[in-house]
Design a protein around this nucleic acid. Structure first.
Lengths: 244, 244
DNA sequence: GCCCGTAGTTGAACGTGTTCAAATTTCAGC
DNA sequence: GCTGAAATTTGAACACGTTCAACTACGGGC
């Protein structure tokens, strides 16, 4: 009963508190009701702030998703890294990363559909292939880089360099599948992971064969070409970009 | 001055005329201003009908896109089939199909972003991986089936059967790249097509090698698994589905 | 020629995401 | 303690996609 507020000790400003409060509320409601069914007004009301206030901290409803991305990634890393310590082979490590990825996303399955809503829109700041999401995407790729680093599999350097990115793209594909997967407990997705990881492991070893060098080089040049083209440095006003 | 209307001769009902009128107007405005910038009210006004009338013929704004899909596909077929007659090799034929595909879509580049907006949303009736778009998607796959049929390349039957679908998926990837491609005249996309077709041709021949049979079988089983899982028979009320 | 059910058409109204000028609160510097 | 600028908060207003009850026009059956 001494000092209810004004805990000057912690550095978190009032603003940060409000922002966190809004985000927590939003994620909770997304989880329970889904994205489209959750209204900005409802979020604001439940969080006990005004509608305009929510927009002060999140430029648009979609920006709440970006914050969600970050959360999700942190959870994934927290789950994957410790588990990785037991795995030494490339295959086991890849399996672990993929499984933990899906497990982490589990509570948000019905809401996850929106994650890909923007993937095709070059103007959207949430496009994982576009600039603004870069930190999140790079962090996602980083996980696979860690995965690769920790294995002794003999992989030629050119392939090794691109593999984190390629595996990240692969993981996006699996997530897309998972979003559509309505099977009980998403068993189909886990089965898909088992099978694709098995195949990928074989393909990586095949591609690492000296015999395959020319074809591999050609394929990697292609990957390079695609990666170069994607991050178009369009500095659109972010608000306008968020519109679509 | 004899009979201004009531041309009983033609079977097209009033409704069909109005529907066509609205669609024409919408596509014209999409082309000129983009999807998001074109308002349903604006479409209705320019078409000279009421707002509600537009919704009588198109359940939602997104359904205008589906109609657009169909148009686009017809144009593509009209451009690709004649050109294919000169091409005999798999590589040449694939090149032709892909180039004409992009050429056909050219006028709609800035509008095309929305095409993929729904790709990640399982509930959307416009999702090319979901049920309702089936006719359009199947038609798209059919083009690649024709492509394959017309070549004498020695491809094992298992692969030959899946190739149309696989190439269709590939074409979706190219379109996604094209949407993001801001290079002049979209040269990067054409370059990508050249390079990927070259690589695909090699990969197909590699995969056709008897030596590769086990790996190929495994990969094809995987493809089968994915295809099976995707068309979830979710008979949601289409209107609700269109919402998201 | 009249009736009636169906197809076509209307515009007001609703709920939503988003914007904005104005009001309020915070807090460093005095 | 006081002050003013910056940070925060507010709620009304806007534009849009969508819905709906009501209205009108059409066309076949008598």
């Amino acid at each position: 009963m001494t000092a209810m507020r004004k805990k000057k000790t912690d550095k978190i400003s009032k603003g940060d508190q409000t922002k966190a409060l809004i985000l927590e509320t939003a994620l909770e409601m997304f989880r329970e009701r889904g994205y489209d069914e959750t209204t900005m007004r409802a979020i604001a009301q439940k969080a006990g702030v005004s509608l305009g206030n929510a927009y002060y901290y999140f430029r648009s409803k979609e920006y709440l998703i970006q914050a969600f991305y970050q959360r999700l990634h942190e959870s994934h890393v927290a789950a994957a890294l410790p588990a990785l310590e037991n795995d030494k082979t490339l295959k086991a490590r890849l399996l672990t990363v993929m499984r933990t990825k899906i497990e982490t996303m589990e509570p948000y399955h019905q809401f996850a559909g929106v994650l890909f809503k923007t993937a095709g829109n070059p103007q959207s700041p949430l496009n994982p292939f576009a600039d603004e999401t870069d930190p999140v995407r790079d962090a996602g790729i980083q996980v696979f880089a860690t995965l690769i680093e920790g294995t002794k599999a003999r992989i030629p350097n050119d392939l090794r360099a691109e593999l984190p990115y390629l595996l990240w793209v692969y993981s996006m594909g699996v997530v897309l599948f998972w979003i559509h997967d309505q099977s009980p407990k998403h068993r189909r997705t886990y089965r898909l992971i088992d099978h694709t990881v098995d195949l990928l492991d074989k393909l990586i070893h095949l591609a690492s064969n000296p015999f395959m060098r020319p074809l591999r080089k050609q394929a990697l040049r292609l990957v390079e070409e695609i990666r170069e083209a994607l991050p178009d440095g369009d500095d659109n006003e972010p608000t306008a970009g968020a519109k679509q």
